[in-house]
Design a protein around this nucleic acid. Structure first.
Length: 423
RNA sequence: GGAGGCGUCGCCUAGUCCGGUCUAUGGCGCCCGCCUGCUAAGCGGGUUGAGGGUUCAUCCCCUCUCGCGGGUUCAAAUCCCGCCGCCUCCGCCA
């Protein structure tokens, strides 16, 4: 949720942000109108209520006719108060509903445009020339078979399309990546976490995933719970309705499963484990001072880059355009790893600065001298297992289908330097 | 899932039976001041959060806030109903 005071005082800034996102500009005026109605109904209610309370206090001391008169008057007032209260509550709900629809304010430097209008900030690493090396690269599905690492057929048999098993070295690879990621995060002072993957509506709503993104979320109707699409959700909600004491930032790194319906992605990435309904991830999350948020965002990106540097996979960093930001994000950087058999870069991490947008919805605050403020929340992927495994297998493959293990990962794989093809 | 107990302003706690003087008691902690070679002690004051009005801002005024949501009543921490959470016991269970 955006700052209601800012909306009131500088609505043009909000309009501009909505425009850059390609979101509704008209919504801004709807919210402002709802705010007017809300405030006037509050004034009406409070005035009546105040009068009622004042008279009501005189009743115990009053006697006889005077008391009867007071009772009659307060009874009448009580009825009016009830009506005023109801209309005040209704105006409040309408205002809340509308203001929650407004997306976060886009940072000024965010590129204009939609999905394809990102700006490439940097390309890192060298693309292998397989032709020069004299062999045709296999894709991760083939490599997964050769290594006994990925079983998509049985995934489909048991759970349906877009499910898979990680087997043998595939399973080991996931755990190694998870440990390497947690290891790095812990070294930088993150608190390791294993959060719940099922959350209440409030947590989902608070992180901004029940808006446009709702179609992509699994819901357990019987229990009114949601399967999280990212551990950003339980991590952000961890401090919901709290006033944080002590130092900021507070940084957490969570290992957790992620579930996505992938609604509307029919036909896209149907082969392999690039786009799946479930994968595991290690995610960084930071609750920080709002004035430090942009700098913290850069730090998260730097930690992501460090991790991917260690995997020795070529990648590029992109600055996502305004039209492609999630509702909560003011700015988003993605790391895209090179996938040789696709001849293009694919998203493997994403870091968003949500400023105080989620913190307002979740009511997460901190104290400073000037008073109480909402924190900023930021999230960033260290490693999403399925896609990381794809990137490692494809980029480090050898002519026989074996895969060399990047040095930094070796200690987490029992020291092995190479994944061997099955006989 | 069943039975019982509990939920008060950071923590502990009074108040709930019997509705109004509760603008919620007291202690601890914390903050400010006084006193004092320093510290401690002592003394005085302050200390939930949200919203609205007013204001350049502060001050101030008002409303809401005793787990959450309804209801009864002129009036609810207090009475009634529903829900949630925690604890104890039973059942089930990795």
């Amino acid at each position: 949720m955006i700052d209601p005071k800012l909306l009131r005082e500088d609505p043009d800034r909000v309009r501009e942000s909505q425009r850059r996102r390609g979101a509704s500009v008209e919504l801004v005026d709807q919210v402002l109108a709802a705010d007017e109605r809300r405030r006037s109904s509050i004034a009406t209610f409070e005035q009546l209520r105040s009068e009622q309370k004042a008279l009501s206090k005189q009743i115990p001391r009053a006697q006889g006719e005077e008391k009867q008169a007071l009772l009659a008057r307060t009874k009448e007032l009580a009825a009016q108060v009830k009506v005023a209260e109801a209309s005040q509550a209704e105006a409040g709900r309408e205002y809340d509903r509308l203001i929650l629809e407004l997306d976060n304010l886009v940072e000024p430097d965010v590129p204009l445009g939609g999905e394809d209008d990102y700006v490439v900030l940097e390309e890192v690493g060298h693309l292998r020339d397989f032709a020069a090396e004299g062999f045709e690269p296999r894709d991760h599905v083939e490599l997964g078979k050769v290594l006994g690492a990925i079983d998509v057929e049985r995934g489909a048999k048991v759970s349906g399309a877009r499910f898979y098993y990680l087997t043998g070295v595939g399973a080991l690879l996931e755990m190694a990546l998870a440990n390497m990621a947690i290891d790095q995060a812990t070294a930088y002072g993150f608190t390791p976490m294993i959060p719940p993957a099922l959350v209440k509506p409030q947590a989902m709503e608070g992180t901004g995933y029940l808006g446009q993104a709702a179609e992509d979320v699994y819901r357990l109707e019987r229990d009114d719970l949601y399967l999280v699409g990212t551990s950003e959700v339980p991590l952000a909600a961890y401090h919901m309705e709290e006033i944080l004491d002590g130092e900021l930032p507070r940084r957490y790194a969570a290992f957790s499963p992620c579930f996505r319906r992938e609604a509307g992605s029919y036909g896209k990435d149907t082969r392999g484990i690039i786009r799946v309904h479930w994968f595991d991830k290690v995610e960084m999350f930071s609750f920080c001072h709002p004035d430090d948020a942009a700098a913290e965002h850069r730090r998260l990106l730097a930690w992501e880059r460090e991790f991917w540097d260690k995997l020795e996979v070529p990648y590029r960093v992109i600055d996502t355009a305004a039209g492609d930001l999630g509702a909560s994000a003011a700015r988003k950087f993605d790391i895209e790893a090179w996938i040789p058999t696709q001849g293009r870069y694919r998203e493997v991490t994403s870091t968003s600065n949500c400023t105080d947008f989620q913190a307002r919805r979740l009511s997460i605050r901190f104290r400073e001298e000037e008073g109480i403020r909402h924190v900023a929340t930021l999230n960033g992927t260290l490693v999403a297992m399925a896609r990381a495994i794809v990137a490692i297998l494809e980029n480090h493959q050898e002519p026989d289908g074996g895969v060399s293990v990047p040095k930094a990962l070796q200690p987490f794989l029992g020291g092995r330097g190479r994944l061997e093809p099955l006989a």
